[in-house]
Design a protein around this nucleic acid. Structure first.
Lengths: 139, 139
DNA sequence: CTCGGAAACAGGAATGGTTACTGATCACCA
DNA sequence: TGGTGATCAGTAACCATTCCTGTTTCCGAG
């Protein structure tokens, strides 16, 4: 199964397991990249044409809150979702929009240092990386 | 003067110096924080009620391209602009939206390590930090 | 198993930041 | 100073996302 104790994880945060939420999770694993909400919507729709886009947005936000999926946001581009909830770097091509992972780079305790240098209660510290992918450099 | 050789810097990239672009720059320095395009627009409008919001957007984007100003983007919030073009960390309160600087935290060559671990040509690597500001923690 | 109330959903309208478009105006070099 | 390409004002359009409303689904208590 895709996520063990899925129902239990949702219930612990006061949510219920619905077929739509399961379908969104399955679509996310099928997409195997960094799909946007709309990408997920299109995949879910292939099997269940009656799902609403708003439902996909809501399901993604619930799944993220529960900690089953992660999201990243680049300016001028829809939010991308990811089954990989471990801290890791992704880079987005400013020309074609493709997102891929940057392996082997650790942030080295930057978040910890941020916490020690601000009176804010830090809730999120993400690296947003942009560039030109190999294919777009050549063209 | 706010920026020496302003005209020259614009000209070098093929742009001209206009009163609107100068006004946007002045508004940005008056705002003294991390204003959004609309914040800048409202300030500029006080002295020149005929400016259009679109002009402010275009001016900000030109000034950024030329390297006179910087911008940062948090999800679910308009892009913020800044006269400080040196690499530095800013944190945004997820409750009231206020942005302030996190002093004394260096990224320690993370960008260099990213460049060495991706086939992309990196054009931008920013840290996006969110949290609760002291005032919002108490309330 | 089944019933009732709470949660979630479908469909579509609304929102908000940003960009695109068009005819009028301006900046600047010859 | 005059011409021309860049820029502007005003406004419409765009797109990702959220909101709204009536209907359906989920699931724990019995």
């Amino acid at each position: 199964m895709l996520v063990p104790d899925l129902r239990e994880k949702l219930r612990r945060s006061g949510y219920t397991l619905t077929s739509q939420r399961r379908a969104v999770l399955e679509a996310l694993s099928k997409a195997k990249g960094h799909p946007s909400a709309e990408d997920v919507y299109l995949i879910v729709k292939r099997e269940n044409p009656r799902v609403a886009l708003g439902t996909v947005y809501q399901a993604l936000s619930v799944l993220e809150e529960v900690g089953i999926i992660g999201s990243k946001h680049w300016a001028e581009s829809p939010t991308r979702y990811d089954l990989n909830v471990e801290p890791h770097l992704d880079i987005r091509c400013i020309s074609c929009g493709e997102v891929s992972e940057v392996p082997g780079v650790a942030l080295g305790g930057v978040e910890e240092r941020i916490r020690n240098n601000t009176p804010y209660r830090v809730t999120r510290a993400t690296m947003v990386v942009e560039g030109l992918c190999p294919a777009c450099i050549d063209s």
